[in-house]
């Protein structure tokens, strides 16, 4: 309902690992495929074979560049879908009750039968996680694959979101943040999982794992120098060293 539940039994969501995402868009298209065929209206495409094709997608991958004076520039691929906020502004603004956050697992959904397509929830979402389908006139958003994660017609291992199942790099993780022992809770704790735009107090459930430190060899004085202490500067010396080394070699002790 447009009133948010006080708390939900589970807090299902995703962890997205920005240190591992290679920006392949696999999650984007598998999401498109699953959600076109499943929950609600198909995700339509306008001008699919023409100028400015525009389709509805529930998950999109941005590419950013991070620069800092004196440091090597970095590229970060950045997937983004609904974060299933605990404090979801998109839900409270909805005039029809079509948008709601599920009591049992915290998934934020749109009941397409009630949606009038006013677009207000998309305005209220800071993250651009909602898209009004241009053919169907209803609001579309990530369903956290609610029709997969409990689906008894799917084998147990496949009861996971389409994007998570498909991610070749394993950069996406699905689980229950209410359970401190879950994979997602642990990853968040270990790797410092972060919120997007925390200043807006939306309390996103999905967490992002920051990229690990990179390019340390560009600037640090190498602590590895001892590994390269020369055994010889030129050929004869080197071959002499080789001889000594080889005579030290135990041969092959296991030889029989």
């Amino acid at each position: 309902m447009t009133t948010l539940p006080q708390s939900t039994e589970k807090k299902l969501g995703l962890v997205i690992d920005l240190d591992t995402c290679v920006g392949c868009h696999a999650c984007v298209i598998s999401c498109k495929g699953w959600n076109t065929e499943n929950y609600g209206a198909p995700l339509s495409d306008q001008n699919p074979y023409g100028d400015e094709p525009m389709g509805t997608f529930l998950n999109r991958v941005h590419s950013y560049e991070v620069t800092s004076p004196g440091e090597t520039a970095k590229t970060v691929h950045f997937p983004k879908s609904c974060l299933h906020c605990e404090n979801a502004p998109c839900v409270t603004v909805c005039p029809t009750g079509a948008s709601y956050k599920r009591q049992e697992d915290g998934i934020v959904l749109v009941n397409e039968k009630d949606c009038i397509g006013c677009g207000l929830c998309a305005w209220a979402c800071p993250y651009g996680a909602r898209e009004l389908d241009q053919a169907e006139g209803v609001m579309k958003k990530c369903t956290l694959c609610v029709d997969r994660i409990y689906n008894e017609n799917l084998p147990e291992v496949d009861r996971t979101p389409a994007c998570v199942r498909t991610c070749p790099a394993g950069a996406r993780h699905f689980g229950d943040f209410a359970d401190p022992e879950s994979n997602v809770s642990k990853l968040t704790a270990e790797r410092g999982g972060m919120d997007l735009m925390p200043e807006l107090n939306t309390a996103p459930v999905n967490k992002y794992l920051p990229p690990r430190p990179k390019d340390t060899w560009d600037f640090e004085e190498s602590v590895l120098a001892p590994f390269l202490a020369p055994v010889a500067e030129e050929t004869t010396g080197f071959l002499g060293w080789l001889d000594k080394q080889l005579s030290k070699l135990p041969g092959d002790k296991e030889t029989n």
Binding site: V22, T75, H77, A169, K214, D215
Partner: peptide
């Protein structure tokens, strides 16, 4: 070029 696999590389040799 640094994107894709090279974006996630811990050390990038451009």
């Amino acid at each position: 070029v640094r994107n894709g696999y090279n974006a996630v590389a811990d050390e990038w040799v451009g």
